[in-house]
Simulated assay, not measured.
Amino acid sequence: MSTTRSLSVPLSLSAPRLRWPHGGFLLAILFVLAGAALFGRWPLVALLWQQATADAAQREQAVWLPDYRVDIEARPLAGIAANLSGLTYDPDRRSLFAITNAPPEIIELSLSGDVLRRIPLSGVRDPEAIEYVGPGEFVLTDERRQALVHVRIDAGTRAIDAGRAPRLALGIGRNGNKGFEGLAFDAASGRLFVAKERDPQRIYEVRGFPFSATAAVDIAEDAARDAALPGTDLAGLHFDAASGHLLALSEESRLLVEFATDGRPLSSLSLAAGRSGLQKAVPQAEGVTLDDQGRVYVVSEPNLFYRLTRPPPVSPAG
């Protein structure tokens, strides 16, 4: 059950039926589960078991990450040397926006990883995540300050000074460079999901920022969902409006996990070598998003771009 705290913050300018696996596949699953349990990775055990026993209806209603295969792998972004972090999809421009923190820049990308423009960013000490929240409207994180910053980007934007932008400083469990690493936005409910990287891992749900007619901000935590996080850190988030499911990215565990609306881990995608069609492991995944066609995009430090697609269902022979 989630717990909610209400804060007054001025927004100033400063059980379905299981489909049991059989034969050798079941044996392989049991070996994986036993290994995970041996090393104390019980959330991973639960995820693998849920994924192995999901029925057709559950898979159809989900993003269902196991079906995805990479079709653009480790493409270096032209002119970007290092520190690539954060990723979001802009459905109006049909492009992607990423962020770097040294130097601070916002980078617009095509859906195949071409650099379209680079926007210098000032007024944010340690930007780590970026999220589209409406036409021309974005939220950034300032990791060390544990602040959310509301900025505007349009076709003519050539530089952004976020020093005077509306911001919300949360300051929850501050511990240096292990702060806010990911963002996701649910436009229907107005929830902004904020990922705290680790020590401890948390996914906060913020209502009232950046759009609110009052100064009240509500912050909710889902303790059961946080306890079920199977990775060892949080590097990125994405909310899928079609399914209502939340995706959470772990850089250290090289894992992307789909959570159902009730907070249960439902499916996963491995970013390790030899999995999901990858020739090499994703070295340091830092951001994830989906577009309106359901394609998954991942960016990795230092400057690498990945795209994964879900093959269309095979029509039965008629």
Results as ranks from 00 to 15, higher is better:
L7I: 14
S8Q: 11
V9F: 14
S14W: 12
G23P: 00
G24M: 06
I29R: 13
A34V: 10
A36M: 11
A36R: 14
A37C: 02
R41L: 13
W42T: 14
P43Q: 10
L47W: 12
R75Q: 13
P76W: 04
A78N: 14
A78Y: 12
G86M: 08
T88Y: 03
D90F: 10
D90K: 08
S95E: 08
N101E: 03
P103V: 13
P103C: 15
P104C: 04
L111H: 08
G113M: 02
D114W: 03
G123A: 12
P127C: 12
V133G: 04
G136K: 07
L140S: 03
T141I: 12
T141D: 03
R144S: 00
Q146N: 11
I153C: 07
A155F: 00
G156Y: 03
A159V: 14
A162S: 10
A162Q: 09
G163H: 12
G163F: 07
P166M: 03
A169Y: 02
L170P: 05
G173W: 13
F180N: 08
A184P: 06
A184V: 10
F185L: 10
A188H: 09
S189P: 00
V194N: 05
P200D: 11
R202G: 03
V206I: 15
G208Y: 02
P210W: 15
P210V: 10
T214E: 12
V217Y: 09
D222G: 02
A227Q: 09
P230Q: 01
A241S: 14
L249A: 03
F259E: 04
L266G: 00
S268N: 00
R275S: 13
R275P: 01
G277M: 09
L278P: 11
Q279I: 04
K280T: 14
A281T: 15
P283Y: 13
A285Y: 10
E286P: 11
V288W: 13
T289P: 02
R295I: 01
T309C: 07
P313Q: 10
V314F: 04
